[in-house]
């Protein structure tokens, strides 16, 4: 395993305002690493520090084995970077724009720009400043991918892309990862991370609130319970369920039959006592919904407050 990005106790303060505090991350070569959190959580701040656009206040930072501040321009040839806000006002055509950027980056293989533009369905003959938000985003993606960098750092890469293009982008990410390129991307749209990322770090208010592979993140979280229970009265069922510390938001819904009740609740933590308690009743139907990441994140935010 080769670590491509590593941060230790990474902190960025602006005067008294703390943008990012005590972040420790590790990104392995060839992996897709997702940084998620709401706007203002510090995602962009972390990504900008990786390419030396801003400098850490404290902590250690290593990218491709070097310190961004000291490594300078040569290190950034090996990186493809998509800024969070691609606000381009150039009069030149998309193709010219990309050719100009190519002169500032690593070697761009012949036809690479055309291939990427074709894939993302971008018309490169139009002036950059006349492009829609989505098409500017495509330009931003092309300039990040075109020199086939070892490390891709993409800030909100799918913003402005329609669902079809989002899927194409995710395919590009998987392909890049399969040939050994490392991808760090940020998002506040969780489904994007869910399908693309091997590892996820969750940021909230500048702090790291969770960190791990996508599967394990779900385990630590909540599940939705739904059950239809027969042959009991509502009070008994309610009392019994309320007593379980693993259950929250317990609701008993009446049905036309007053001996049958529909139960909904949120399971937090260990599943076993819940199932055993339910088993003492007659169960007509039972569903335990795997939480989507969104619920997990909301749950994580709540717990960090």
């Amino acid at each position: 395993m080769v670590t491509v990005v590593e941060t230790r106790a990474l902190t960025k303060r602006y005067g008294r305002h703390v943008a990012v505090q005590n972040i420790g991350l590790q990104v392995q070569r060839g992996s897709v690493f997702g940084l998620i959190g709401p706007n203002g959580a510090g995602k962009t701040t972390v990504l900008r520090m990786l390419v030396d656009i801003i400098r850490p206040t404290a902590g250690e930072l290593s990218v491709l084995g070097e310190t961004p501040r000291r490594a300078g321009a040569a290190m950034r040839r090996r990186i493809g970077y998509l800024p969070g806000d691609v606000n381009l006002t150039d009069r030149v055509s998309g193709r010219m724009f990309l050719q100009h950027i190519a002169q500032l980056s690593g070697v761009v293989a012949e036809h690479k720009i055309d291939q990427l533009a074709e894939r993302l369905e971008l018309d490169m003959t139009r002036p950059v400043r006349d492009l829609s938000k989505g098409n500017r985003q495509k330009l931003g993606l092309i300039q990040a991918f075109m020199h086939e960098p070892e490390l891709l750092i993409l800030d909100e890469p799918t913003s402005g892309l329609d669902p079809l293009m989002q899927r194409e982008f995710l395919a590009m990410v998987r392909e890049a990862s399969s040939v050994g390129q490392t991808i760090v991307l940020s998002s506040h749209i969780l489904s994007e991370i869910q399908h693309a990322a091997d590892d996820v770090a969750v940021l909230a208010q500048g702090r790291l609130v969770a960190h791990g592979d996508v599967a394990s993140l779900r385990l630590t979280s909540v599940a939705r319970l739904g059950a239809v229970i027969a042959d009991t009265d509502a009070l008994t069922l309610h009392t019994r369920m309320q007593a379980l510390e693993q259950l929250e938001d317990v609701h008993i819904h009446p049905t036309p039959d007053d001996r049958i009740h529909r139960l909904t609740a949120t399971i937090r933590g260990d599943m076993d006592p819940v199932v055993k308690a339910l088993a003492t009743f007659q169960i007509r139907d039972l569903t335990v919904e795997e939480p989507d990441l969104e619920e997990s994140i909301i749950d994580l935010y709540a717990r960090t407050k």
Partner: peptide, 17 residues
Amino acid sequence: ETGRLELTLAHAVGRVQ
């Protein structure tokens, strides 16, 4: 202010340069 400098400096261009 337009964000273009961020894009340029994220490539192989140094600050002093």
